[in-house]
Write a protein that binds this DNA or RNA. Structure first.
Lengths: 150, 150
DNA sequence: TATTGTTATACTCTATAACTATA
DNA sequence: TATAGTTATAGAGTATAACAATA
């Protein structure tokens, strides 16, 4: 028995991230930045420091490489990223963020990280407790801190 | 400050429900049942008892009514549901599950409710604690039970 | 006149297959 | 011969607008 509590908890986890307001957020955010949801998602996967091969981006977005071609085309048209040759393998093209792309990417990530309002109902203790439990579920070991009392 | 813990917790909530294995589940499940992801989602929104007006289904799926027309067309072709007239308002058509549709819908719901493996790492106490915290976030009042000790 | 559902149509998202350049 | 990316194309998924029936 997966325990009734686990089933219910899983239901609430889905309810939180499938909340219409949350789903709309990605769309609205992209529009506010003058781009598309797919490009916004791609930006969130690109690091400002490390240029990323097209194929790797396809993996991160879980889509075909042919689609990445058109997504990156869009990013170049909007001045958010550019293609550059790979230093050693000339078959590979890497995608690197422009300055503007890095700014937009940072805003996108910050906005997506913003917890929905319900989290404000949690006190600091509850928030830490929730985090600890979710870490158990996800399998992330707790980082090595002296959990500060309360 | 939304508290670092809340931000982290929210990140993990998203990680759980956007897990590739979970995302693939809906798709694979639909295929196994010989139907499409969209129809599977529609089935999950239909109750076996209460027939549902097309327009209401559009709301539940958050799509246009014109699209509901084609989704319900598909469900009828597959013998999963049928249209029936509304008892009092002849403009309205309600969608009702066939026997087979009700069976498939039940299997779809059961499969989607299955928590991902990480939840098995939780003991019964942890599962209940997680559930209680998520209820605070979602705003659902705790149901009126004498929480049975540990 | 307002509302429900349908039709016709078009646009976005994404994949498959064939191709080019490089390894 | 195998791999990275591109092109051309086709298919899902979904919306918009005009329409018919009913309220």
């Amino acid at each position: 028995m997966a325990t009734q509590a686990a089933v219910e908890a899983w239901r609430l986890v889905r309810a939180l991230s499938h909340d219409p307001a949350v789903l709309r957020r990605g769309h609205d955010l992209a529009e506010a930045e003058g781009t598309t949801p797919t490009i916004a998602k791609a930006l969130a996967h690109l690091s400002p420091e490390r240029p990323v091969p097209m194929r790797e981006l396809a993996g991160a977005l879980r889509c075909d490489t042919s689609y990445v071609t058109s997504v990156v085309d869009g990013m170049e048209e909007q001045g958010l990223a550019r293609r550059a040759p790979h230093p050693t393998d000339r078959r590979i093209k890497v995608v690197e963020l422009t300055d503007r792309g890095a700014e937009v990417a940072a805003r996108v990530r910050a906005a997506l990280d913003q917890p929905p309002p319900g989290f404000a109902a949690l006190g600091a203790d509850d928030a830490r407790a929730l985090l600890a439990l979710l870490r158990k579920v996800v399998g992330t070991p707790e980082p090595n801190v002296q959990h500060p009392g309360a």
